[in-house]
């Protein structure tokens, strides 16, 4: 028995079969390393910004941007926007994450359906902004429900005259303007002299089509997602590159059907405007959204009213100064 095994090994050692087999094993083991070493100079990460911006969006997109910064293979980022903005606070957070990323690597933005208000804030630090004719850009500014004017009474006692109201209406508008000034500054800083409209015109919060945005400097070029990816690779000086599409870990909530339809987010749904805004709220909610997204002009019950979990509302009509 042992002599027959020795004979087989002797034959094998003399033939090429064993060496080829060993060569295949070693070759296949090293192949991925060799492939990685020769096929790509780096990776362009695609980060989707989809739906209304909330703290969840901010955490999710922020995490993707952080991942891009920390992954040594990722050399550039493309932010794809299908968003009309959202919470002012969350939008500021995203702006800073995008800015932090742009300090480290090229960031290119592509406006798919929309980059409005808080979403435009987010992409403001991008080195280049791509848009297409049907893209909507702009609505730079802040809105909020004005706080209800209340004063301490026999039911609620306070230690200061503004403890209940937070201040008078001029104080409130001052806060609103301060938030917006930060926004305008960020846009001017990000566009770095490329805006062809004045600050006053920017503050008018108009919506622009992609073509108009390129014309007025709120975007740089007409192009699609591939254009943006290629530009990001060029800016990172990548001749050969991989594209890695990062996926959010949460459902995208859309206020705009326009963006909802355009988005390819795997998990998405439409939400009512009162998810973001309820004019009956006593405390202000600061939003960076186009007003048309949150003002329900049809006299139909809002979700909040349908749920009617609070005391029955009395009709309230406001025409503010």
């Amino acid at each position: 028995m042992s002599s027959s095994i020795r004979a087989i090994l002797s034959r094998a050692s003399r033939s090429y079969v064993l060496f080829v087999a060993i060569g295949l094993v070693v070759g296949l083991t090293l192949a991925p390393v060799a492939f990685q070493a020769t096929s790509s100079d780096g990776t362009v990460a695609v980060v989707p910004l989809s739906g209304g911006i909330t703290g969840g969006t901010s955490a999710s997109v922020g995490s993707m941007l952080e991942q891009a910064r920390e992954d040594p293979d990722i050399e550039a980022v493309v932010i794809v926007s299908n968003s009309g903005g959202g919470s002012a606070s969350a939008s500021e957070e995203l702006y800073l994450e995008a800015k932090r990323t742009s300090e480290q690597m090229p960031v290119v933005a592509y406006v798919d359906s929309a980059a409005l208000s808080g979403a435009y804030y987010t992409i403001a630090p991008a080195d280049t902004i791509y848009a297409k004719p049907a893209s909507l850009v702009g609505s730079v500014g802040t809105l909020a429900n004005a706080p209800t004017s209340v004063e301490p009474n026999t039911i609620i006692a306070t230690t200061g005259s503004n403890k209940l109201s937070g201040g008078d209406s001029r104080e409130f508008y001052t806060i609103l303007e301060t938030l917006s000034n930060s926004f305008y500054n960020a846009v001017e800083d990000g566009r770095d002299g490329r805006l062809d409209i004045t600050r006053s015109e920017l503050a008018e919060a108009k919506l622009y089509s992609g073509a108009q945005a390129v014309e007025n400097g709120m975007a740089d070029r007409i192009g699609d997602r591939r254009s943006a990816v290629r530009a990001a690779a060029d800016q990172a000086e990548l001749d050969d590159y991989d594209v890695q599409i990062l996926r959010p870990n949460r459902q995208a909530l859309f206020l705009s059907r326009n963006s909802y339809l355009a988005s390819n987010a795997p998990d998405k749904r439409m939400v009512s405007s009162d998810y973001f805004f309820d004019p009956d709220d006593a405390a202000p909610t600061f939003l960076m959204l186009p007003g048309s997204y949150v003002v329900d002009t049809e006299n139909e019950p809002t979700t909040a009213a349908r749920n009617a979990t609070r005391p029955a509302a009395t009709a309230r009509e406001e025409v503010r100064a």
Binding site: D296, T297, P301
Partner: peptide, 10 residues
Amino acid sequence: GISASLFGTS
């Protein structure tokens, strides 16, 4: 103006 009531805003 925005009118808000139990039946929504208009």
